[in-house]
Design a protein around this nucleic acid. Sequence first.
DNA 1: TATTGTTATACTCTATAACTATA
DNA 2: TATAGTTATAGAGTATAACAATA
Lengths: 147, 147
Amino acid sequence: MSAEASTTTTDELVHLATDLRLACMRISRRVRFESTDTVAPHQFSVLARLEDAPRSPRELAAIECVSAPSMTRTVNRLVELGLVGRAGNPDDGRQVILSLTASGRATLRRIRRKRDQWMVSRIAELPASDKALLRRASAILAKVAQQ
Amino acid sequence: MSAEASTTTTDELVHLATDLRLACMRISRRVRFESTDTVAPHQFSVLARLEDAPRSPRELAAIECVSAPSMTRTVNRLVELGLVGRAGNPDDGRQVILSLTASGRATLRRIRRKRDQWMVSRIAELPASDKALLRRASAILAKVAQQ
DNA sequence: TATTGTTATACTCTATAACTATA
DNA sequence: TATAGTTATAGAGTATAACAATA
């Protein structure tokens, strides 16, 4: 009875984990639902991967944990939509190099802006103390997600 | 320079929204990825809807925002798996009433436990002050998601 | 022979349209 | 005729296996 008072009990920990997980999943769900755009989730994900650097289909398939034929299909569609460009590698005739087009970059920006807008509109009305708390929580959650 | 110090600027607000959204989405993604179980996401969702009360296929289709034939298919599979039971409505011969079986309830519990475990293992190591902060953040996020 | 990428084929989830049974 | 549910059919995403081209 004395040892439990000062620290977090297992029960409290599980409770916190459940509540926090549900809150994150619900927010994630709402954001995804709200920001349904011109490209599907798996297409958005590939565009985001190409943002930093051009990549080969194989690389993308590995990162996204899908098969090579699946990635071929996804990439074909993105090329068709004009969001991704395909180029050959002069040093290795087998390889294909994929990169974002200007339109692809614009699409990424637009989708992110839309997602953020949903979140901004909900946070804006909160009292300053809640915002400050979420600011700190955000950093902790980011670390938790990275683990 | 004097007015901006005390309150949240638009820029800070958007920044917070982006960070918080990304953190929630990443955690959600990790949880879903980690807890891939016997049933697919859309099946899990239907099981959860049947937890509180039996429902008709039509009701489920409306709640889950899918077509009636899609729900027929999903339900068929869940019945095949023994997780959902099908019964006729004596008052209306057209209607079908779906409810969770004992096995369906057990499956829901098992999946939730698995999802929680991932979150618990990550939160457990945090300092007590972070846990306390997340406890408060969780409540705020829950309200935000509900809006 | 190993690697990169595509094509062939099949399974699942989704949808719309057509159908059956009941009200 | 209107409603609940299913069946018919098609489109998109996924997978594995087989193939072509290059190293």
